[in-house]
Design a protein around this nucleic acid. Structure first.
Lengths: 354, 354
DNA sequence: TTGTATGCGTTATCAG
DNA sequence: CTGATAACGCATACAA
């Protein structure tokens, strides 16, 4: 009994050919010694070598996961779903951050595609700059699935969430609290997520006979904390009738709330704030953030499954959409009476030090 | 020109044997046609098949990464370092959370080891419950490196950071701000990180002729936000002379700060707070958190390198220690005058709603 | 130093 | 339905 048993050992022991064992393992029909084969496999504790299998099939047994930054908390959430699905199939992962060095660089991924170092690609939050990357994959006929892309892309599988309905949910929640004037602060101006969330919000308010005035619609430029803070400084500089601000994502909201806190604006007493995505971090804020959660884990597993399907048998592209879930926390409350925003309650203005 | 070139094509084209090409590729000396070989390889754009190489070598081309939870922000940071080192070597990753389901379960990893589904293991923040897992790896002679283990482990490579020096740095910082009475709140009572950080802190204060009274040393039980909050409620319930609290990690500090905020305790005016780890989230808090950062990326790359070394040639176990970096932000300030802690400044006690 | 031949563990092809 | 055998692409013991 030296070393691990291989397919040959099993064949010999079961009195059939290796081809039969192989067929048995791959689910194709084997009339005769079915039971006997199963027995032998169990007896020998035989585990097929995925690496040999992949060599034979011309596969890598490995899929590439592309994201702006591995540090993005959004991505971490997605990873949970990927992990589960991928390890169940004995497939491994290659990670690539396109912004590892500080500026965008997709060369690593392009190399993966050209050298076929991965069997497929999962691209998280693809945006405009990823176009060439995606084109490359399509041309190389390398299966790819986009998770929550920020743009419309053709010819690729997509897994995303239902932003419009989520926007409507937020509208309903705010209206129920008596808010009549709501502002929206988006991310990059061409972000699909941003647009859809806004459009859902608008629609939801319309349903209540309210209007989301376009003078109350802003763009922060990107999705980062700093942009939210910058927007906050501008926002509080001019007067507004808005009693609630909805942000296109949680990080923007967090940046904004920091500024509000410095300026002594109380949340939610003076102003309600809503984010999008459902990052765990939002729950840990001094005033926990009302947000709309994505079904991260489900999206992760769905993306994987879809990718594996495409690898096994190239099918038609399709888009899978998941519902989002409103999570009401502390940052939303009843609308203040119009025109009474206090800015002195807590105005110690600590100010950033460094 | 059909398909990709393989080692045979290259050999033929260069007029040598495949063995020579193989040797050339693996850095062994090849006197004769060195130049010619390089030429041909470039010409044909030949890339060796790592999968075939691994099959031949009996390797999987894949290392396992084990962590409590992929969602742990600490882990995300580490991942940056791993990503880089691993993709450079065309090695892929398998992720496993031991707490994916809510309760501890290391079976997936044990299966990896038994079936040799990975060439090596990187175990992040190993603790007592991971003992059997590690034993299993050692017995199977599967190379493993522990990153920032929370316990002492024998016979395994370790990459950690210099907690004691970091503790001393914190002490120096607080003493410079005039703090004479400092409290320490640890994580699990048997956590090495906790112990070492405390001991460094203590030592640093001794250097200034100050004492860290043991009545000011607490354990929160674990490293999570909730434990920090729970500790906070107890802490503010009884009187103390401490003007600063040092937490064994950032999450504890965050939980604590939320409670402080609810109770109207001003940070840093009434109380200074220090965390450990340097999570990005700490910078985004309403009062950004003074903390001591780990060299995540360096630890990640070091762990990988060490692991690959062990895979290539089993050497003696060794421990690599990285310095930590104090990051002074808003949560630390000059010590308040003794006995004057205010608890009403901001006491609107919003309270959690849901 | 270099070449030859064999092994690594599967899957696919093509007869039977 | 089944069995023998050639790929898959590389590494290495052995012989030259």
């Amino acid at each position: 009994m030296k070393g691990r048993p291989n397919i040959r050992t099993v064949a010999k022991e079961a009195g059939v050919s290796v081809a039969t064992i192989s067929r048995y393992l791959n689910g194709r029909f084997v009339s005769a010694a079915r039971g006997r084969i199963a027995e032998v496999i169990a007896e020998l504790d035989y585990k097929p070598s995925t690496i040999a299998r992949n060599l034979s099939l011309g596969r890598r047994g490995c899929i590439g996961v592309v994201v702006d930054s591995v540090q993005d908390p959004w991505f971490t959430q997605l990873l949970v779903g990927l992990e589960e699905e991928v390890s169940a199939r004995d497939v491994s992962l290659m990670l690539a951050s396109t912004e590892l060095t500080g500026k965008y660089d997709s060369n690593i991924v392009v190399d993966w595609i050209r050298d076929r170092r991965v069997d497929g690609l999962i691209i998280a939050k693809a945006q405009h700059r990823d176009r060439s990357l995606i084109r490359e994959a399509v041309e190389a006929k390398l299966p790819a699935v986009l998770v929550a892309p920020n743009q419309e892309f053709q010819q690729v599988q997509v897994v995303r969430c239902d932003n419009r309905s989520a926007g409507k949910d937020v509208a309903r929640h705010l209206c129920d609290l008596g808010h009549k004037h709501v502002a929206f602060a988006g991310g990059p101006s061409n972000s699909i997520d941003s647009k859809q969330r806004l459009s859902g919000l608008r629609e939801g308010m319309n349903d209540r006979g309210l209007l989301l005035n376009s003078s109350n619609v802003f763009n922060c430029g990107d999705f980062e904390v700093d942009a939210g803070a910058k927007f906050g400084r501008q926002f509080f500089d001019k007067s507004t009738n808005a009693t609630a601000v909805v942000f296109a994502n949680d990080l923007l909201a967090i940046g904004f709330m920091r500024v509000a806190h410095k300026l002594g604006v109380r949340i939610p007493e003076d102003l309600s704030v809503v984010g999008f995505n459902g990052l765990p971090e939002g729950e840990r804020l001094w005033v926990s953030l009302t947000t709309v959660a994505q079904a991260f884990q489900q999206m992760g597993t769905a993306a994987c499954r879809r990718l594996f399907e495409s690898i096994d048998s190239p099918g038609p592209v399709q888009t899978i959409e998941f519902p989002m879930t409103l999570i009401v926390r502390e940052s939303t409350g009843p609308a203040r009476r119009s025109g009474s925003r206090s800015r002195t309650a807590n105005g110690r203005g600590a100010g950033a030090r460094r």
